[in-house]
Structure formats: structure tokens, C-alpha cells
């Protein structure tokens, strides 16, 4: 084993069978492409649909209390804000495929900053709008029966409490750890290239 040619002979002896044929790969590629950002698109479409539905209900139905209209408006606004935030981040992901590692590192850093901003500001605004909206919206139907109202609000506050104090911090921690691992790895690779 004295030269690169010997190593190359060994290297080229690797079997490359078992790879999909071109037609199959085209099918995989099309499926994979739509799958990757499907979750984001789903959030955008669903939150827009829900906001439209709430506004349609407010326009068609006649409610007695102003709180119902304010609550519905706030919930619709939170849905639209969620859709807008996700839509803005989509463009960045689409541009990611053909970039250098340094550009990718910058992308990770920007994503980390965006994530922090989302957690501290945007998510708080969305949850606040949605929570206040829901509390106000449910006041009218619940006000007819005091027991109903108490039960409904108890369930609602429990749900909101879990979302605020358990789900939200956990989600942030998990995403932040994932990003941090990628950032460290990319930084290590950048060091190797210097």
C-alpha cells in the first residue's frame, strides 16, 4: 500500500447498487420537497382558515356582548400574526439549498436570533392575543349559566397555564438545543477550514 492509486482502487471497489433509479428518485424528490416544509405551510393555511372562519362567524351571527366581537377579533388577529411569522421564515428556508458552509453558519445564527425573538416577543404576543380573545369570546355563551362559566374558565385557564408554563419552555429548549448543536458543529468545521 504505497500510493494514492492503490487507495483509489480500493475506494472504487465500493458497490453502488441499491440506489433508486432516476424515475424513482424523481418521485422521491417531489415527495420529499413537499414534505420538508409541509408543517410550516400547514400552520399558515390552517391559521388563515381559522381567522377567516372566526371573522365570518362574527359577521354573520348577531351577538349581544361587545366582548364576543373583541374576543373574536383578537383571536383572528393572533391567527394572522402566526401565519405572517411562518410565511416570512419560509423564504429563508427555500434559499438554503445552495449556500456555502459560512452562509449556512450565518443562517443558523440568524435562526437562533429569530427563535429567541419569536419566543420572547412574537409568541408572547400571539398567545396573549389568543388567550385574552378566548376569555372574552367565551364570556357570552358562558354568562347564561354561572356554573358553566366557572367550569369553562377553569378548563381554559388550566389549558393556558400548561401551554405557557410547560409546552412553551419545553419547545423552546428542545429547538434551542438542536440549533446549538448544529452551530457548534459548523463552527468546528469553519475552524478546520482556517
Amino acid at each position: 500500500m504505497n500510493n494514492l492509486d492503490d487507495l483509489r482502487t480500493i475506494w472504487l471497489s465500493a458497490k453502488t447498487d441499491g440506489l433508486p433509479d432516476p424515475d424513482e428518485m424523481k418521485r422521491i424528490v417531489k415527495k420529499f420537497r413537499s414534505q420538508k416544509l409541509r408543517k410550516k405551510w400547514l400552520v399558515i393555511v390552517m391559521s388563515c382558515l381559522l381567522s377567516c372562519l372566526i371573522m365570518a362567524v362574527l359577521a354573520v351571527m348577531h351577538f349581544k356582548f361587545i366582548t364576543t366581537y373583541i374576543g373574536g377579533g383578537l383571536m383572528a388577529a393572533s391567527g394572522l400574526l402566526l401565519a405572517f411569522t411562518n410565511f416570512r421564515s419560509l423564504k429563508r428556508f427555500y434559499e438554503l439549498d445552495d449556500c456555502s458552509n459560512l452562509e449556512f453558519l450565518a443562517f443558523i445564527e440568524q435562526t437562533r436570533r429569530n427563535q429567541e425573538f419569536y419566543y420572547k416577543k412574537t409568541m408572547v404576543a400571539i398567545l396573549l392575543l389568543c388567550s385574552i380573545g378566548l376569555i372574552l369570546y367565551l364570556y357570552e355563551p358562558g354568562s347564561r349559566h354561572l356554573l358553566w362559566l366557572a367550569c369553562m374558565y377553569a378548563a381554559l385557564f388550566s389549558y393556558l397555564g400548561i401551554m405557557w408554563f410547560v409546552v412553551r419552555p419545553r419547545m423552546f429548549k428542545r429547538d434551542a438545543e438542536k440549533l446549538e448543536a448544529t452551530r457548534k458543529r459548523l463552527e468546528n468545521i469553519s475552524k478546520q477550514l482556517n
Binding site: G18, L19, P20, M25, K26, I28, V29, K30, F32, R33, K36, Y94, D97, D98
Partner: peptide, 19 residues
Amino acid sequence: NRDQAKDLVQETFVSVWKS
């Protein structure tokens, strides 16, 4: 690792297809 290598080939050609 053959499976991971196949996944990476797939990801590469997804990017090629898009770009």
C-alpha cells in the same frame, strides 16, 4: 453507513432538483 449515505444522496438530489 449505507443507509445514511443513501439518505444523503437523496437530500443532495432534492437540493439539485430545487436549485
